[in-house]
Amino acid sequence: MRPVIPYVTAALLFGLGVYGVLRRRNAVLVLMSVELMLNAVNLILVTADTTARAVLPHSGQVFALFVIVLAAAEIGVGLAIVLQLYRLRATVAVDDVPLTESPDPVDGREPAVADSEAGR
């Protein structure tokens, strides 16, 4: 088995993930690109488990499992944030989100209060 093949696959996937995160405007697509990057790291870890003989056997695969758990937690919280953003602003374009808070924070919170009251 030549480890360079999965290593190169993982490197290219990581580059694609970086490209997607920077290129995409839709927040859901940004999350998909983050998944690509996390999977590239998983592939690196599993391949490293075959090339490096660590003191503890199968450490790379154990870490890959940990990364999968982290990805599951990340996607849950990330999608909750995206859905909340959609509820507040009716858009999921990440460059429509103001990075600096508006001078009057009460105004920014008004639609949420109105929304949740209208929902009841």
Binding site: A10, F14, G15, V18, Y19, R23
Partner: peptide, 12 residues
Amino acid sequence: AALIGGGAGLGL
């Protein structure tokens, strides 16, 4: 994006 993504991927 292409520059940074391509740089990261090809560099790695």
